[in-house]
């Protein structure tokens, strides 16, 4: 099977949530000597981004989104040994939390599930998490990226507090930051000095990858 056919097949298995077939395709790619990182990025990950886009249009639902993420997990396991030391794209570690005073985490859960499928390790601190806890974990884990979510206009200020505290402790350049949640906007991200804003789950994935490649 050609590279193009394998890539198409990989995308298809994700769109159809077909775990056994996805693993078969991954094994076939390895057997044919194709670059696993290439197949992951252009095939399976592209499929995930497509599912994310369909989810954003109300054409695919959360269970399907989670199933596709699960298929992706099996594929990455299959590729794991082959990929070691061959990454063309810088992947990293991300600390993620819903800010203090806010207990909403449906959106955060969706974003994390998708980001994980792109080979980024995510440490989910849950909801109602203080800025000090977020920074402490990011330092301990040597994270590259900090993502915060806030649903309420009243808790949005915690995202600014995070930026201020990072600056105060001389840590601002150590991490990239991304903000999201219903009242957050690009302008808000610019104002507080966050590195990125994710409008929805699909955009959050794209922006995370882009930040890690910087």
């Amino acid at each position: 099977m050609s590279r193009e056919a394998i890539i198409q097949e990989a995308i298809d298995t994700i769109l159809k949530y077909d775990q056994p077939r996805a693993v078969q395709v991954a094994e076939q790619a390895l057997a044919e000597g194709l670059d696993p990182v290439d197949i992951l990025t252009e095939g399976f990950s592209a499929g995930i981004r497509k599912v994310g886009d369909l989810f954003g249009r109300g054409e695919v639902f959360l269970p399907e989104l989670m199933l596709s993420a699960d298929v992706m997990k099996s594929v990455t396991n299959t590729f794991e040994s082959a990929i070691q030391g061959k990454s063309t794209q810088k992947k990293g570690k991300m600390v993620f939390a819903t800010v203090e005073g806010d207990v909403h985490d449906i959106g955060k859960g969706i974003v994390i599930s998708l980001i994980k499928t792109q080979g980024i390790e995510v440490i989910d601190l849950g909801r109602d998490v203080s800025v000090s806890k977020i920074i402490e974990t990011a330092v301990q884990e040597n994270a590259n990226l900090i993502g915060t979510s806030a649903l309420l206009t009243t808790t949005l200020m915690e995202q600014k507090k995070l930026e201020d505290e990072l600056k105060k402790h001389g840590l601002r350049d150590k991490f990239k930051t991304m903000v999201g949640g219903a009242p957050a906007t690009q302008r808000w991200a610019d104002r507080i000095g966050a590195d990125a804003y994710g409008e929805d789950a699909a955009e959050a994935v794209e922006k995370s990858l882009s930040l890690l490649n910087k």
């Binding site: 249009r57 109300g58 054409e59 695919v60 639902f61 959360l62 269970p63 399907e64 449906i106």
Partner: peptide
């Protein structure tokens, strides 16, 4: 919201699937 978020995905009311309705 403008479309019904499919947290379940298969729920129906009088034969209409609710997820994804605009």
């Amino acid at each position: 919201g403008e479309f019904v978020l499919g947290m379940h995905g298969q729920l129906t009311y009088e034969g209409d699937r609710l997820a994804g309705l605009y």
